[in-house]
Design a protein around this nucleic acid. Structure first.
Lengths: 195, 195
DNA sequence: ACCGAAAGTGAATGCAGGTTCCGCTTCGGT
DNA sequence: ACCGAAGCGGAACCTGCATTCACTTTCGGT
């Protein structure tokens, strides 16, 4: 009876910790190729574990998807921070857009499911705050038309996700052209009815 | 024994014909509010019929969705024809874009399911052919930059669908601004890396 | 009004997949 | 090497549909 009395939580066993990661990796892989309706069974199989093990770690499929969505946000946030770190506003923006396209290409089969799970959550606010800053910087640098807001860039992100999803098989790079065109529009500014 | 011997098919009973329409209407309504996973049971209930009746008309849920997708194509095609009928290329294009936005706003919950079922089918080719023409006309009129193709407009359609889906609740008109911006980009033309 | 065929009905069936649970295994500390 | 607890496995269980089918109702022609 030496270490156990550690307040409330005791460190989990090493294998348990390892499995945590294994499960999430397997889930990502399987969701990526089968979409969000992939069965828990198939995820367990891919992970080389029994279904029960997944349930020990995650309350259910829902929770598993949530966990992945959280990582998703994390990565997006990191990319935004990265873009913001670029001293050149134009390059930073481009870099971010590039990331969005590539990122969604992998996850195209279940990107929608992830986004639903994240929208309007306080975590995504953290990203939006950065996107907002990224946008403002670009506007000030004259890369985007005055009046362009974070919302506009957010819409572009949503659009890229969709275009990637629709064209990933036949024309893996079609989204680049799309993004380039839209950015040109943002540079030109929306004529009359501005917000 | 007077009329029955009509070659192969005899005219269906009046109520059967009526139900055909009732079922599709009900299905559209239910899918619109619950998405494509709505149960056959709920569709039957909405139609005021038993599930069996639906199965008499449609081979299964899949087939029902297909039938709706076919109508979907029909309507899109009609809208494209309509746009093409406008003597002013710019106005025609705008009109079509407007239609796409409004159309997908209703169906946002199951638009994705419908499109999957249509993509690359010979029917959708009919639409693309018109979109192509619509685009060419606009390019010739100087409304869109030279080099703009039907593909570009197709991508815009996909994008609008997504933006509508993402913002329909909070900002029902956000897609208009998005479309306007993108069209500005198409007018300006994508700089270097063109197709 | 009557009849056979066409339609409609909805309970019963089958199944797919999420979730639970309990016996077995492995870990980590002594 | 031994022990209790933490983990794991995966068959059994449950639920929510889609789909079927034996039976009843309605249609339309005579």
């Amino acid at each position: 009876m030496s270490p156990p009395a550690s307040g409330t939580t005791r460190r989990p066993r090493r294998d348990a910790l390892r499995n945590d990661a294994i499960i999430i990796d397997a889930a990502r892989a399987v969701f990526a190729e089968q979409g969000p309706q992939a069965s828990m069974e198939s995820i367990a199989a891919r992970a080389g574990l029994g279904v029960g093990t997944i349930y020990r770690r995650f309350a259910g499929k829902e929770d598993l998807l949530d966990a992945i969505a959280r990582l998703f946000v994390e990565e997006m946030d990191a990319a935004a921070a990265d873009a913001l770190a670029d001293p050149d506003p134009a390059r930073g923006l481009d870099r971010f857009i590039d990331f969005v396209g590539a990122f969604n290409a992998e996850k195209r089969r279940y990107a929608a499911a992830l986004t639903e799970r994240v929208t309007s959550e306080e975590v995504s606010r953290r990203i939006m705050e950065k996107v907002e800053r990224l946008t403002r910087r670009a506007v000030e640098a004259g890369v985007l038309a005055p009046g362009t807001t974070g919302r506009d860039v957010e819409a572009l992100i949503v659009a890229i996700r969709a275009v990637v999803g629709a064209t990933a098989e036949s024309e893996p790079d079609a989204w680049r052209r799309f993004a380039r065109i839209h950015l040109a529009g943002l540079r030109a500014g929306a004529p009359e009815t501005d917000r």
